[in-house]
Write a protein that binds this DNA or RNA. Structure first.
Lengths: 121, 121
DNA sequence: TGTCTACATATAGACAGCCTACATGTAGAC
DNA sequence: GTCTACATGTAGGCTGTCTATATGTAGACA
């Protein structure tokens, strides 16, 4: 997975895995790995700063906990973050539709029309 | 459209619009705008350097032409570029599938399963 | 005892691509 | 003479992701 491609989509991914339940950074990385079928192995140097950024913005809140002698900082979605996640989801759909549409536009000519859809409007 | 989101997908878009026929930079911008239904208004400061980069790599070749007294640099896909486009297309599908899958994972819980698809393998 | 791995967080600095802003020039309409 | 559309290009800023490194606990194993 080309790292640049993640640019601008990391927030959506992080907010999304936190929607179900609060998690600490390490667990978030594992969750992304699992939910992507092994495709998304995001380095700690990406995740930890991103989580802090999202907290600074107000989408996440965090608190420390000690489990089995190890310290964890557990993040949870704020109301603001939950709202943002909605926005991220629709932004993703728009984005995927637009890019996918442009990429498909020329391939279609080759005779492969299959399930081509057009955005209404 | 969040600019960061384009990061890493610009190459695919540019190669894609050049698949059908050679175009000059300005026409490429218009083509992207049109094919995206107005969603993709890419600034010249993004397109021109990107085209030069793609030419430097070997995915595009260019030649100057004068039409109606105006100079144009027309770009066309090389064999290498055509091959790269194939790769970009499958990379996009993989990417969209992975991100979409993770974003959907939690929303699904709400009962909305609709047409969920999984990439084979 | 020492070493290794998994768990867990964090930061510094490099890298790269997209953007804003600006520069330059032609053609045609008005 | 001015404006808009056409057409290309560069400099410099921004910012998010990555690599590499640092720190520390717990438990397995020799």
């Amino acid at each position: 997975m080309n790292p640049d491609a993640l640019r601008g989509h990391m927030d959506a991914l992080l907010l999304s895995v936190l929607e179900r339940e609060p998690l600490h950074g390490y667990a978030i990385i594992e969750a992304l790995l699992e939910r992507s079928g092994g495709a998304l192995n995001v380095p700690t140097g990406t995740v930890y700063p991103a989580l802090r950024r999202l907290e600074r913005i107000g989408y996440l809140s965090s608190e420390w906990a000690t489990v089995g002698g190890r310290k964890r900082r557990t993040y949870r979605l704020t109301d603001s973050g939950r709202k943002q996640l909605e926005g991220e989801r629709s932004a993703w759909q728009e984005f995927a539709s637009v890019i996918g549409g442009v990429l498909r536009a020329d391939a279609v000519e080759a005779g492969e029309v299959s399930g081509a859809r057009r955005a209404a409007g």
